[in-house]
Design a protein around this nucleic acid. Sequence first.
DNA 1: GGTGGCCTACCGCATTTGCGGTAGGCCACC
DNA 2: GGTGGCCTACCGCAAATGCGGTAGGCCACC
Lengths: 214, 214
Amino acid sequence: MTSTAPLRLALVEDDPELRQLYSDYLCRQPELTCVLLAGSAESFFDQLPDLLQAPQVVLLDVGLPGRSGLDALPRLKQLLPDTEVVMHTVFDDPDRIYQALCRGASGYVLKNQPLAELKAAVLEVARGGAPMSRAVARQVLAHFKPMPTAQAGLLSVREQQVLEGMVDGLSDKQVATRLGLSPDTVRTHVKNIYRKLQVSSRAELLSRHAKGQL
Amino acid sequence: MTSTAPLRLALVEDDPELRQLYSDYLCRQPELTCVLLAGSAESFFDQLPDLLQAPQVVLLDVGLPGRSGLDALPRLKQLLPDTEVVMHTVFDDPDRIYQALCRGASGYVLKNQPLAELKAAVLEVARGGAPMSRAVARQVLAHFKPMPTAQAGLLSVREQQVLEGMVDGLSDKQVATRLGLSPDTVRTHVKNIYRKLQVSSRAELLSRHAKGQL
DNA sequence: GGTGGCCTACCGCATTTGCGGTAGGCCACC
DNA sequence: GGTGGCCTACCGCAAATGCGGTAGGCCACC
């Protein structure tokens, strides 16, 4: 059942030395084939039409010159919706990680890892996993634990949880289910949140939240 | 720098056979010590005061009788804020995973894994990682990005104008005023936008927009 | 000439939301 | 003991929203 054919991999990395290093190592693996090597997002897209078969996995550097890996990601996923993308970078800041995941990356590994980790990540994502370096995984989880909207004193904990649900696009009823409350209770919380934050509709709330005004 | 002292582990698992199996295996590892074995959340909390030192990691079953692992989690984190909790369960539904992470779990491994995985997860979380089974990691990422849409040319100009108004937090009527249209026309556009972007409420739309998915 | 998308505008109906109350239990502060 | 905040939950009502239609005019493409 597992494919005997090697996995088609594309590698996008601007540093020529590193690109060489990675491709040397990865292509030596029997499970992998590098079908595309690029030093920039533009080069990647240029080379795409030449391929007989699309890559199954793309290792994408974040810190590319010109169009960054992050910028290229939406277009990449649009052109190759079934291709898994693993971000590969030195950056482990929450914002870049968040952006990458929001734009469709299925993995995020840091560059200070041994090469074997890189190979493992590629294979893992092809198997339906979501390889993440230690620090990255923690960042991701951190997104759930604290409330993203932390204007501490104003809203109570419960209200922040309700707000969280609304920010995720849920209806009152869905929020109630998530928190194990009566829909009416959620409605009460919503009313209080509106009062405290001086808004008068869900749309206004989400709009302001998007603008970072919350 | 790495502690030579074994890691203090607590195991909460209601099935006596499984508990025995896990504790036998895990305690045999030189890196670990089981300082607490419990068959329920209540038992866990009862035994806590007897410990000289708090456990560094808790392996917590989700499907506990009475107070479920999910319910016990907030209290646990409150009492032991520096203890890492790894959920251990057969359930891989998004909601339970989400609940666990929101309540402070730092890992989530499924029960169909080999024992070595369990040990690896415990050590990984103690090292500051966030061990997650393959399926779980995917669920977590899915939370950031389901991505059915890439709408470069998808929306017409008019629809984008309407969308813009919605993103600004305006109601249908306000959008109509801004664009000099009938509210009904705006409503038609909104319906078409929802269809094209595969959403079914304003909140969902704004939520996705905030995540940069639009 | 037909097809199909877009823009406009309306109807009807069910659900959701916004907004005003009330209310009991709990807990902390004075 | 009173006051006030928080959490819970309900009632009622008006407005907004979601969803299914229909429909005419315009324009482009085949």
